[in-house]
């Protein structure tokens, strides 16, 4: 696509056309060829350093003791669970509004990874809650809203597979993803809006972190590592989906007897 075709008569870029530039499966395969190994390498390096630092060298908390080391897993999982769902909703908008060819495939592949990440957030939270609160689970606003997020992920996966026509499944799942985004501010502000057992955020955009650098640095490394890992998993799954789709097209073409006319 030339530069001129990306612009309106007024000279402004058209978002839909700009996005379609990156919607070409061939272009995505070329991009993933170098992006996937890079993301895997980044994830491995950051996680190796961050997790070992957090597990062995970072100090124990004065109040929580060693159980604070679960934070290096729980916090990245919690952030990725919400970010993954936001990505799912963006894919829903791209699919419904601009009919982006890769958006539906991306949503299909983000869903299971997001569900696993949310499940890990809930499991590590329970394992942190038991020694601190004396209970594996409490019907606290933060915990309940994250459980709702997990069910939204499961609903999204189920909806995609619930229709014989995949396009109808994609549309229904996109609507659910967009509607479910209401849960994200509830998760974020639940500790402020309600009296919860869950502690408030230690890292915010508006205030300085309430933890020392000896904990903040390994936590940041783990966050980058897990984010790169999440991106690598989604990119790899999307790449596999594109390859499977090409194979399916070839099979269909052959079954219709068009193989020798191509």
């Amino acid at each position: 696509m030339t530069k001129a075709t990306q612009q309106t008569l007024a000279g402004r870029p058209v978002p839909g056309r700009f996005l379609h530039r990156f919607a070409n499966p061939g272009q995505f395969l070329r991009l993933s060829h170098w992006l996937l190994p890079l993301l895997c390498l980044l994830s491995f390096c950051f996680l190796a350093v961050g997790l070992l630092w957090g597990l062995l060298f970072s100090p124990a908390d004065w109040q929580q003791g060693d159980s604070v080391r679960i934070m290096y897993l729980h916090v990245p999982m919690a952030i990725l669970a919400s970010t993954g769902y936001a990505a799912l909703a963006i894919c829903g908008v791209l699919s419904l509004v601009w009919k982006h060819p890769l958006a539906d495939l991306a949503a299909v592949e983000i869903g299971p990874v997001g569900a696993v990440v949310t499940a890990l957030c809930l499991i590590t939270g329970a394992l942190w809650g038991k020694p601190m609160w004396g209970a594996w689970w409490v019907w606290d606003a933060r915990l309940t809203s994250v459980l709702v997020l997990f069910f939204l992920y499961l609903g999204h996966i189920a909806l995609i597979q619930a229709f014989d026509d995949p396009q109808r499944g994609y549309r229904a799942a996109a609507v659910l993803a967009i509607a479910g985004i209401i849960d994200l501010p509830i998760i974020k502000f639940s500790v402020s809006w309600w009296n919860t057992l869950h502690q408030p955020d230690s890292i915010t955009l508006t205030h300085a972190p309430t933890m020392p650098a000896s904990m903040l640095i390994p936590l940041s490394l783990c966050m980058i590592g897990f984010a790169a890992g999440f991106a690598a998993l989604v990119t790899g799954r999307l790449k596999a989906a594109v390859l499977e789709s090409r194979a399916q097209q070839l099979m269909t073409r052959r079954s219709w007897g068009m193989g020798d006319t191509a």
Binding site: L51, L55, G65, D66, S67, R69, I70, L73, H74, M77, V113, V116, A119, L120, I123, T124, L127, W128, K130, P131, G229, L233
Partner: peptide, 19 residues
């Protein structure tokens, strides 16, 4: 708290490795 920490790391590493 080490059993809880070991279980957390074990679960996460197993799930990520499986994916």
């Amino acid at each position: 708290h080490w059993p809880y920490i070991a279980a957390s790391y074990g679960c996460t590493i197993m799930a990520v490795s499986a994916l």
